[in-house]
Every structure is written in structure tokens, then in C-alpha cells.
């Protein structure tokens, strides 16, 4: 079984349907009274029979229009939601950056939040101890790190969150549209860090609309359209085709 697994993420015939509730019956009474009519719940198929294999060390972009299902695919990979049909296998420690600052506590200080956030990603205290200085240095928030994060500006908040996520040393990094973090200076820094990670052995999957960054960063792009893989290949080729259709 444990033959050479050279893939990091394998998406195998995955279909995801969401139930559309027009008026969600969530109390017992409503469930009992309307249990027949409730079965008529509309379902929307967001992804249908997706097959993707992402190799270790690849940097892949998921592109597509709004509502095409790329964020859903990313959520499926992180195991926040589960496929209706099919299977997703990931190999190695995984970190996701779906929304920056998920799990931050406003009353905790920046430092406490680093510990809390990193522990959500599954790090132990000693591991965080070893990294906390790097994280603070990367975020450039030394002056404010012992203030509660509710006093932070939104840019500072994002910087801290990004610094934690990018420094937890996961083998797979899933990022949803957050290349636009902070000011120009910090954006460049993040970009550099991502390139550094790309050149090390990390697997990165990015959902993004900033196609120029994608072109620079990724060697492969997957174009998702209406829940199907429309095109999969070299980033430049796929993006060109995508732009052509968007016109």
C-alpha cells in the first residue's frame, strides 16, 4: 500500500452538492410538520466528477470566474467540508489560509493569538516557541505584539495572520485569494516568501484572481468552469485561454 506516493493531493471523482434551503427548517416542530415537503430541497451541484492529482512540490493555481466552484474545491481539500461523492486524499501536514485571522480572539494579545492560531494548525507549544520570533519578525509588528488584536488595524491583523500561517511549516499550503495582504512592501515580502516556499519542497495551491501573480508564481493552472475542470496545464497557456474567453 505504501508504495511511492509522489502526489500530495489526489482528488478522485469528487462531486459536491449543496442543499439549498429557501427557508431552513431547523426546529423539531418544523422538521416534523414539513418533513415531506422538506424532501423537495433543491440541490445545487457545485462540483461534478473532478479528478485532479497534484504532485509534491507543485505550485498550482485554481482559476475561474466567481461561483465556478474553486473555493469549494479548496475547502474540500482542507477537510472543512466533505464531498458528496468521491474521495480526496492529502499526504502530509496541511495548512490553509482561507480567511485570514480565522480563530483569532480579539481580546487576546498578538502573541497569545500566535500561540492559539498555530495550535489550531496542530503545533505543540515547543514548536511554536521555536518559531514565535520568526513569526513576529515577519509580521513586523514587534511594537504591537503585546496589545490585544482588537486594537489592530485590518492590515496589521492580516499581516499577523499571514505570518502565522506561512511559518507553520506545513507541507501543503492552501491559499484563497489573499495575495493582497497589507501594503505594497508587505505584499512583496509575502510574494517572496511564497516563492521561497515554492522552491523548497512545499506543495502550494492558490485560488486567485490576480492572474499576473499567478503567472509568476505557479507552474501549473487549473481552470474550473461551472463545476468542471475546463483546462489543466501550464500556467501561461491556461491563463491565456482563460483571458480569451473572458473577453
Amino acid at each position: 500500500m505504501s508504495s511511492v506516493k509522489n502526489y500530495a493531493i489526489k482528488v478522485n471523482h469528487v462531486t459536491k452538492k449543496f442543499k439549498i434551503y429557501y427557508d431552513k427548517a431547523s426546529t423539531l416542530k418544523e422538521k416534523l410538520v414539513f418533513w415531506k415537503t422538506n424532501n423537495k430541497n433543491e440541490e445545487r451541484t457545485v462540483l461534478e466528477d473532478i479528478n485532479i492529482e497534484i504532485k509534491k512540490g507543485e505550485t498550482v493555481a485554481l482559476i475561474g470566474t466567481n461561483g465556478s466552484g474553486k473555493s469549494t474545491l479548496l475547502k474540500l481539500m482542507t477537510k472543512i467540508i466533505y464531498p458528496t461523492k468521491g474521495k480526496i486524499i492529502t499526504v502530509g501536514k496541511l495548512t490553509s489560509l482561507l480567511e485570514l485571522g480565522a480563530g483569532f480572539h480579539d481580546d487576546f494579545t498578538g502573541r497569545e493569538n500566535i500561540y492559539f492560531n498555530a495550535s489550531i494548525f496542530g503545533l505543540t507549544k515547543s514548536e511554536i516557541d521555536a518559531k514565535v520570533d520568526d513569526i513576529i519578525a515577519f509580521s513586523e509588528l514587534e511594537e504591537f505584539i503585546d496589545n490585544p488584536v482588537r486594537t489592530y488595524s485590518s492590515g496589521m491583523y492580516m499581516r499577523l495572520a499571514f505570518s502565522v500561517a506561512i511559518n507553520v511549516n506545513a507541507e501543503i499550503l492552501l491559499i484563497d485569494e489573499i495575495l493582497a495582504v497589507g501594503d505594497q512592501h508587505f505584499q512583496d515580502k509575502c510574494f517572496k516568501k511564497l516563492e521561497e516556499l515554492k522552491n523548497s519542497d512545499k506543495t502550494i495551491v492558490i485560488v486567485s484572481h490576480s492572474l499576473n501573480s499567478v503567472r509568476q508564481l505557479c507552474n501549473r493552472a487549473i481552470w474550473i468552469k461551472d463545476g468542471h475542470v475546463k483546462m489543466d496545464g501550464k500556467a501561461d497557456t491556461v491563463i491565456d485561454k482563460y483571458l480569451e474567453e473572458c473577453k
Binding site: 482542507t78 472543512i80 490553509s96 480563530g103 489550531i120 494548525f121
Partner: peptide, 9 residues
């Protein structure tokens, strides 16, 4: 709910 929707653990 907030963390459950955004992070896996």
C-alpha cells in the same frame, strides 16, 4: 461556528 467554517482541526 466561526472557526469551524474556516479552519480544519
Amino acid at each position: 461556528a466561526g472557526i469551524i467554517k474556516k479552519v480544519y482541526f
